[in-house]
C-alpha cells in the first residue's frame, strides 16, 4: 500500500510541487494550507509522514508540532529561514528532519525515505514486473529466482526505486551510490545500469533520458 503523506504548506505552488514530486514516486498526498486544517486532518486520517512549513497561517508549525507530538508521526520541517535557531528549535520539538527553501525535490524524497526507514515504515518488498526486491535482505529475485547483483548494483537499484519516475543525472547516481568522495568516471554508472537492465530484464523500465540521465518508470 502506498504511504500517505500530509503536506502543510500555505503557498499553493510549493504545495503542488511537493505533491507532484511525491505522486511521481507513488506516495499518496493530502494538501492543507493552514495549521488548523492540518490539525483536523491529523485527527481525521492516519498519515505516515507530515511535511510541515513553519510559517503557516492560524497555527504556526512549531505550535502544531507540539500538539501532534503524542501521535508519533514523523515530521519534516520546511522553512524559509536558515537561522540556526529554527533548526535547533525544530529538531528539539521532535521534527525528524528539516529542509530550507528553496529545496531540491530529489533531496526531499531522500529525506522522506530516510525518515520512513528510521520509523520502520519503508516497504519490506518492492515489485516491478517480474522483479521483486527485498531491501532488508538485500535480495533480488526475477520470476522467483534469486539474481546475483554486486553490492553497487543493488544500491543503484534501490536509488532508482526510491526516485521512481524521476530522472537522476549520472553525477547524482555517483553521489548516492558510490558516495560523495568517489572520483570515478560517470561511465561507471552507465556500465552498472547496463548490467541491471540485462540481469533483471528491465530494458523497458530503466529509460535513458537525453541530456539528463536515467529514470525508472513504473
Amino acid at each position: 500500500m502506498d504511504k500517505k503523506i500530509l503536506i502543510v504548506e500555505d503557498d499553493p505552488n510549493i504545495s503542488n510541487i511537493i505533491k507532484m514530486n511525491l505522486t511521481l514516486v507513488h506516495y499518496q498526498t493530502v494538501q492543507v494550507y493552514d495549521g488548523l486544517a492540518a490539525l483536523e486532518g491529523i485527527e481525521r486520517e492516519k498519515f505516515d509522514l507530515i511535511i510541515l512549513d513553519v510559517m503557516i497561517p492560524k497555527l504556526d508549525g512549531f505550535s502544531l508540532m507540539e500538539q501532534i507530538r503524542p501521535k508519533n508521526i514523523p515530521v519534516i520541517f520546511l522553512t524559509a529561514k536558515s537561522a540556526v535557531f529554527d533548526k535547533v528549535n525544530g529538531l528539539k520539538l521532535g521534527a525528524d528532519d528539516y529542509m530550507v527553501k528553496p529545496f531540491d525535490g530529489i533531496e526531499l524524497l531522500a529525506r522522506i525515505e530516510t525518515v520512513l526507514r528510521r520509523y520502520g515504515k519503508d516497504e519490506s518488498e518492492i515489485s516491478i514486473d517480474d522483479v521483486r526486491v527485498f531491501p532488508d535482505k538485500r535480495l533480488t529475485t526475477l520470476k522467483g529466482e534469486p539474481v546475483e547483483l554486486t553490492p553497487k548494483e543493488f544500491d543503484l537499484l534501490v536509488v532508482l526505486i526510491v526516485n521512481k519516475n524521476i530522472a537522476l543525472s549520472r553525477e547524482q547516481f555517483l553521489d548516492k551510490v558510490w558516495g560523495i568522495d568517489y572520483y570515478g568516471d560517470t561511465r561507471t554508472v552507465d556500465v552498472h545500469i547496463k548490467s541491471l537492465r540485462k540481469k533483471l530484464r528491465l530494458q523497458d523500465r530503466i529509460k535513458t533520458i537525453f541530456k539528463i540521465g536515467y529514470r525508472l518508470e513504473v
Binding site: 505552488n13 510549493i14 527553501k101 528553496p102 518508470e217
Partner: peptide, 17 residues
C-alpha cells in the same frame, strides 16, 4: 517562496515522468 516554486517545477518538468 517564488524561487522554490520556479526551481521545483523546472526540475520536475525536466526530470519527472
Amino acid at each position: 517562496t517564488p524561487l522554490t516554486s520556479i526551481i521545483g517545477y523546472a526540475n520536475i518538468l525536466r526530470t519527472g515522468k
